[in-house]
Simulated scan of single mutants.
Amino acid sequence: MDLGMYESRADYKSPKQCQKSSFAFYQAVRDLLPVWVLEDMRTMEVFHWEDDGQACAYSPSEAFLYALVHDHQQYARYLLNRFSTRALEMPSRSFCCCQASTTPHLAIAVRYNRVNILKMIMTTIKDFTDCERRNYLNRHGCVHTDSGKTALHLACDLVRPECLILLLGHGACPYATDLTGNTPLDCLLSQICQSDFDMRTKRICLGYLILFMPTFRFQMKRQLQDNADVWRALIGEQAFQWLSGSSPPSLFVQAMQKLSQSIPTDQLDSLPDFLKPLDFRLDQA
């Protein structure tokens, strides 16, 4: 009798074997192998080791995390089309320790600037109810990796204008606060005052936020008012006047606020050039 055969089978789901097969799956997604190969691996060959001592196959949600990290758009599309919202469920604790927080897919999409996959996610969550969609977009992220920030906060922290407009256009709340009470606008203003690097992109993000904020409620308003000359130089006279409360936005800006909130985000590019949010005229933009 070949006892070695039984030993290899018994060892198939050991921690060591799980580590090997898990890394093989990671490499396969990283190398952008065809979807059918990845699904064969996920459903039949690959296991990861859980903290409770169980060997588990990768769920669609966990596979989708890998697709996000490595920008495997075909695999991401397959998982969302095949499993729909199951691909956006909370993964196991070995992937995300904060089980009470939002699912990490939005945060990873923003962190890695996976705009095309983020668009796929926005399409998928259209099947949610309005309440479910708002909860999904606005819940706090992991306190360990994202400091409890929402995806919108991260888009401002990392200055991701395309991610920012997608989130805003699909219902992310510009007034949501993180665990320290900061709004996304506070995060962006902090980035603006820390460095003048890539200031044009920061001002584009500021323009997007203004388009989706009929009223300006944020913690740093007092700082703007107390350091008027500094902030005028950083964001321009018009934006300073609006954010500091010295004057209301112009009629053009108010009209653009209504327009931007009434048409699908993916149709913003079809607007005439003079109406596009990128032409939204902040001083020195």
Rank of each mutant, 00 (worst) to 15 (best):
D11K: 09
Q191W: 08
A76T: 06
M1S: 11
V230N: 06
Q223K: 13
L251Q: 13
L167K: 03
C56M: 13
A28L: 09
D226T: 12
D196A: 13
M213Q: 09
H170Q: 05
S270N: 14
A55T: 13
V46P: 01
H70N: 11
W49Y: 15
N81A: 14
M120W: 01
L164R: 03
S262A: 15
D273S: 04
F216I: 09
P174Q: 01
A155W: 00
S61A: 15
Y58V: 02
A67P: 05
Q194R: 13
H105N: 06
A255R: 08
P91C: 08
Q54A: 09
W49N: 11
R114N: 14
N138Y: 04
Y208E: 08
F128C: 05
P161S: 04
G236S: 06
R160M: 00
D269H: 13
M41S: 00
E132V: 01
R200Q: 14
Q73I: 15
D52L: 05
D196N: 15
L278D: 12
D283S: 02
R114Y: 11
A107T: 01
L179S: 14
Y6N: 11
I210S: 05
A100W: 13
T103A: 15
L106T: 02
Q219A: 12
H144C: 15
S94D: 10
D226Q: 12
W36C: 10
R82C: 14
P91A: 07
I235W: 06
N113H: 07
V35A: 09
T43Y: 10
D52A: 05
L32G: 05
W49I: 11
R139K: 12
T102L: 06
R30T: 12
R134V: 05
T103H: 08
M220H: 11
P174A: 03
D266L: 09
T265Y: 11
S94L: 07
F212T: 10
Q73C: 12
K20A: 15
I210W: 02
S101G: 10
P249C: 07
L189A: 00
L158Q: 03
K126Q: 15
M41V: 03
H144L: 13
R111M: 11
P264N: 04
Y58I: 00
Y75T: 03
K149H: 03
I108H: 01
G148M: 07
T145N: 02
L88P: 00
F47E: 00
G169R: 04
E45H: 14
P161I: 00
P277S: 08
G207F: 01
A255V: 02
D266Q: 13
L211W: 03
S250W: 10
W231D: 02
L152R: 00
S147T: 00
I125K: 06
P264M: 06
D130H: 10
T177W: 01
F252V: 02
I125G: 02
S101T: 08
W49E: 13
K13Q: 12
H105M: 09
F240R: 02
Y136V: 04
G148K: 02
I263T: 04
G53E: 15
A87G: 06
H105R: 04
F128P: 01
T265S: 14
